[in-house]
C-alpha cells in the first residue's frame, strides 16, 4: 500500500512554501523512523544489561515514552504527505470531479484545525508548566514541559503540510 500515492513536493512545485515545507517534513519523517530504530536498540541494551550484567536500565521505560511521543509528532506530517492517514472515502468516491477539490480543501482545512486545537492547547500547558515548575516522577526527573515540546513541533509541521496541500488544491 505504501509508496503508491502521489507525493507532494514534485520538482516543479514552487520553492516556497511547497519545496521547503516538504523538505522539512521529509527530514522530520526520517528522524521519526530513526527514533523507532533507537527505541529498538535501547530495549536491546536494557535486556542485555538486565540478564548479562545484572544492572537494569532504570530509565528505560520513561525514555521509551518520551522517544515515542517525539517519533509520533515528528512523523505525523510525513504520514500526511504520503497520504497514509485513513479517511472514510464513501462520499469522496461518489462525488463528481467538480466537487472533489472542495472535499480535498475541506480535508486539508480539517487537519489545520486539528493541529491548531492541539497546538494551542499544548502551548497553554507548556507555558503553565514552565511557570509552575513541575517535574516528572521517576528515574528521569525533568521538567514536565520538556517532553511535551515535540507535540508543539508536530502540530506546526502538520499544519504546514496541510497548508501546502490546501494551496495545491487552490492552484488546481
Amino acid at each position: 500500500m505504501h509508496g503508491q500515492e502521489p507525493e507532494s513536493g514534485a520538482a516543479d512545485a514552487p520553492l516556497f512554501p511547497d519545496r521547503i515545507v516538504t523538505a522539512l517534513v521529509r527530514l522530520c519523517g526520517a528522524l521519526s523512523a530513526l527514533l523507532i530504530l533507537v527505541i529498538l536498540a535501547q530495549i536491546t541494551v536494557a535486556v542485555v544489561r538486565r540478564y548479562l550484567l545484572d544492572r537494569p536500565l532504570q530509565w528505560n521505560d520513561e525514555m521509551i515514552g518520551y522517544l515515542l511521543v517525539a517519533a509520533v509528532m515528528l512523523g505525523a506530517a510525513e504520514a500526511l504527505r504520503r497520504g497514509d492517514h485513513i479517511a472514510i472515502d464513501l462520499l469522496p468516491s461518489r462525488v463528481g470531479p467538480r466537487a472533489k477539490p472542495g472535499l480535498q480543501a475541506l480535508s486539508a482545512l480539517s487537519v489545520i484545525a486539528f493541529a491548531a486545537v492541539v497546538g494551542v492547547s499544548i502551548w497553554d500547558s507548556i507555558a503553565f508548566a514552565i511557570s509552575f515548575g513541575s517535574y516528572s516522577v521517576g528515574y528521569i526527573e525533568i521538567q514536565t514541559w520538556i517532553p511535551q515540546i515535540p507535540v508543539l513541533i508536530g502540530c506546526v509541521l502538520l499544519a504546514l503540510m496541510a497548508l501546502v496541500r490546501l494551496l495545491q488544491v487552490i492552484r488546481g
Binding site: F128, F132, S136, V137, G138, T144
Partner: peptide, 26 residues
C-alpha cells in the same frame, strides 16, 4: 495521575487527589 497536579493548578479541572509521591521533585 501524572497530570492531576498541574491540571488542577492551571484550572482545567477544579479538584484532584494525588498520592504524596506524585509530587516528586516538584
Amino acid at each position: 495521575a501524572r497530570d492531576n497536579i498541574v491540571s488542577t493548578a492551571k484550572g482545567d479541572i477544579e479538584c484532584a487527589f494525588s498520592l504524596n509521591f506524585q509530587w516528586g521533585k516538584t
